[in-house]
Design a binder for these strands. Structure first.
Length: 678
DNA sequence: CCCGTTGCGG
């Protein structure tokens, strides 16, 4: 029998290695035959150990080598890369350079990937330069690693520059570009790039489709998404958990929750990420109840909720003002996870939006490493509760730390001033924002200032401020001005604002209601009729008013004139009784808030049926005397209900807290915390 | 001579 030379005889042995014992045997054999120190065989042994997950043994072999060929280095570097130890990868890479070893395609590729996961753009660019010097500038592997580094660091334009110079591009390069665009908020370019790839005759796979699906999700185009879905099915592309989760996320982001559910139910294999996508999908679309049910269901299916699913659940609770459940989620988090600023800030938001401002503050004080977002959240909380002064003092406290206030901080601060009517403070800090902090004012900052000035009756100044804007003033600014004009009977400037608002063709019924209200005040009945006509057109966003009240740990939702409720009779009876008592102490219905063309008497009746009245009455009926009520409303509380609620608190001697879409109203003893300034 | 190295989800 003729013996093969040792290297050839070793090969099948190497391939057959499955456990440590057999690796050790081959290792010993190599040492005996003198092959271990020769050629590239040491690298194989390192790779073998690494493949079993035993990186320590791999490193021991590596360290004991008297001399190391490039394969030994690469095997070690790749082993660290698979273990996701980017720091070790870079350490070894630097050692290679110091020891004069020339890295090759694999080394550069893996080193660049390590920089990507560390978001270390500077080191990455150094490595890329050296790779180009060594002649790997046109290597697909090195190239796609650089593309990915740039993409993940948000430098898509640099990625494009590299991509355009690549002579050969494989599917991976295209995928990197497509998902890079999708994740940098450039979905159109993502889709274009995909089309370009198709034109060059490259067949896509499931992974590249994930990028395309993400692009569809961000595009908000409800047509392209299903097309991509159909294409996946037609081409019989592999649909794994990842692809299906992105599909589900895309449908949810575009508001198609039914389709999202369908995808989810059909998934043969689910995991925490898919559950998380489902939960935050429902939460972001305002379906808090479903989101929370899914959180519970997820656990009964044996999945432990992670950070993202819990954040989704918190968002859901905070949206509908479900304090009790929110608290239990908070408790769960404290028991289960590290309570960092991200979750802390979400819980601050929860408590503040559920009316528990002092709890929010307690929590804020407990967060050790507060970041800008935590501060902004707390400032916003004070703002929406109408505590402008506290917002300011917290802001001042923040300026003593080494955090720098950003555009969002000032948006929170200025809106806090506007909720409290602190005109002087608003002007002072608006100026400082521009001149000392060098933050160019954005639409939202102007909107706060215009709102602040206009509501205080200084509509002329507000108008001048709009004129001084160097960007085109948008809807928010004009609406703020118009609202201020309405409140103060400033018809001249109101006319300008009303025209501008109409020019911008808003698709929001509430805005038209304001315009119509203005024309009514100006006694321009023809214009009123014109606006009503626009409002009657179909396709306008018509959000039905809905109020939610928490009673004994359960949420109860009410729509306007909701006769389906089992206590409807009792509720109406109570409202009737209250109506009489209110009128006796001076309440007059403000029928101007009804926009339908009906008789005065009917208007009064309609006001009495507003969802918040039903929720308040239900709350009063089903809670003990003295219990504070928290009502959450999806629209702004109407002027008449605001007035009525004040009277009600006086009659029943209760505290009623109403959270509308903009801010909080704490009613007590006939007075509202907003000082009728909202 | 061939091998190792690059792209995906909430």
């Amino acid at each position: 029998m003729q013996l093969l030379p040792w290297p050839k005889r070793l090969k099948p042995l190497l391939l057959a290695c499955k456990d440590k014992a057999s690796i050790a045997k081959v290792h010993a054999l190599m040492v005996l035959t003198g092959l271990f120190d020769h050629g590239n065989f040491s690298g194989r042994v390192i790779a073998l150990y690494a493949r079993t997950g035993d990186i320590v043994s791999a490193r021991k072999v590596f360290d004991l080598l008297p001399q190391r060929g490039i394969d030994a280095w690469n095997a070690m570097v790749i082993a660290y890369s698979h273990k996701e130890y980017p720091v070790e990868v870079l350490n070894l890479y630097r050692r290679m350079i110091l020891e004069g070893v020339r890295p090759d395609s694999s080394t550069f590729t893996v080193a660049l990937k390590a920089c990507m996961s560390l978001s270390d753009l500077k080191t990455g660019e150094e490595i890329w330069c050296r790779a180009v010097d060594c002649g790997y500038g046109f290597d697909v592997f090195v190239g796609s690693s650089v593309l990915n580094l740039y993409a993940k660091c948000g430098k898509m334009d640099e990625a494009i520059a590299v991509f355009d110079k690549m002579p050969r591009r494989d599917l991976v390069c295209w995928t990197t570009m497509i998902s890079g665009f999708a994740q940098s908020g450039r979905p159109i370019e993502a889709v274009d790039t995909y089309r370009r790839m198709q034109k060059e005759g490259i067949e896509g796979d499931g992974i590249v489709m994930v990028g395309l699906i993400q692009a569809c999700a961000n595009l908000g185009d409800s047509k392209l998404g299903p097309c991509v879905h159909g294409y996946l099915i037609r081409r019989d592309l592999p649909m794994d958990v990842v692809v299906q989760t992105s599909l589900l996320d895309m449908y949810a982001k575009n508001g198609h929750l039914g389709l999202a559910c369908r995808v989810f139910k059909k998934m043969p294999c689910k995991n925490v990420v898919s559950w998380g996508a489902l939960i935050s999908g429902f939460a972001q679309n305002g379906f808090a109840g479903n989101a929370l049910e899914f959180l519970i269901e997820m656990q009964s299916c044996g999945y432990r909720p992670d950070l993202v699913s819990l954040l989704g659940a918190l968002l859901a609770c905070s949206q509908v003002g479900f304090l009790k459940l929110g608290k239990s989620v908070h408790g769960y988090i404290v028991r289960r996870l590290d309570f960092d600023q991200v979750l802390g800030t979400a819980v601050i938001d929860l408590y503040s939006k559920c009316g528990a401002l002092s709890w929010a503050r307690t929590l804020f004080d407990q967060i050790k490493a507060k970041d800008l977002i935590s501060w902004n959240a707390m400032i916003t909380s004070y703002g929406i509760h109408g505590h402008g002064k506290e917002a300011l003092s917290l802001f001042l406290e923040m300026t003593k730390t080494n955090l720098k206030p950003d555009h969002a901080t000032f948006a929170s601060l200025l809106s806090a001033f506007s909720h409290s009517g602190l005109v002087q403070e608003g002007q002072y800090w608006f100026n400082l924002m521009v001149n000392k902090y060098n933050i160019p004012p954005a639409e939202k900052h102007y909107a706060c200032m215009v709102d602040l000035l206009a509501r205080a009756g200084r509509v002329e100044e507000a108008h001048e401020l709009i004129d001084s804007m160097n960007t085109n003033p948008g809807l928010a600014v004009w609406v703020a001005l118009l609202a201020g004009c309405c409140k103060n009977g400033k018809l001249l400037i109101g006319e300008i604002a009303a025209k501008k608002v109409l020019e911008l063709n808003p698709d929001d019924l509430g805005v038209y209601a304001l315009v119509s209200n203005y024309f009514g005040k100006a006694r321009k009945w023809e214009e009123v009729a014109g606006v009503r006509k626009i409002m009657k057109k179909t396709g306008m966003k018509k959000v039905p008013g809905c109020s939610v009240v928490e009673v004994k740990g359960k949420l109860h939702a009410f729509l306007m004139e909701d006769k389906s409720h089992h206590q409807y009779e009792d509720i109406m009876q109570l409202l009737d009784k209250l109506d009489h008592e209110m009128r006796a102490i001076g309440y007059l219905p403000k029928t101007e808030f009804v926009l339908h063309d009906v008789e005065e008497e009917v208007k009064e009746k309609m006001l009495g049926n507003h969802s918040e009245r039903l929720a308040i009455a239900f709350g009063l009926l089903n809670t003990g005397p003295g219990t504070r009520l928290l009502i959450t409303k999806n629209l702004r509380v109407c002027g008449d209900c605001h007035e009525a609620t004040k009277f009600i608190t006086k009659i029943v001697n209760r505290e009623i807290v109403v959270r509308d879409v903009k801010r909080f109203h704490h009613f007590r003893n006939g007075i509202c915390s907003c000082g009728d300034y909202w």
